[in-house]
Amino acid sequence: MSQELPPQAQNQMSQLQQLQQQAQSLAVQKNQVESSQKETEKALEELNKLPEDATVYRMVGNVQVKTTRDDAIEKLEEQKENLSLRLQSINRQEERISKRFKQLQEQLQQSMGKQQQGGQAQ
């Protein structure tokens, strides 16, 4: 079917497919970031319940390093902030992709309409 499409429409179609793949990959990333966010919030909730002198370990690479409760809280707050920024960036990318997708869809419909009109005129 795609062989019957004019080159412009074919190009638009492949761009649409690429955008769809990008949107899928972004959705996976968003899911991962959101789940990390939840995990961080839950860990923070646990840490805040502990006494100040509690013994806490933080994973550094493959080893557990002893730290204080407050230091762990600080690190997790930082992590939470970074995750939130990443989520904002993903949301912005998603909006951009969705806008471009709609634009391309309209252009493709126009190209197809022109092709149909051309076919009828012949």
Binding site: T55, Q64, L76
Partner: peptide, 12 residues
């Protein structure tokens, strides 16, 4: 005992 509470943090 040291328990993992997620996000790379463990608590004694």
């Amino acid at each position: 005992f040291v328990i993992d509470i997620g996000a790379g943090i463990s608590v004694e």
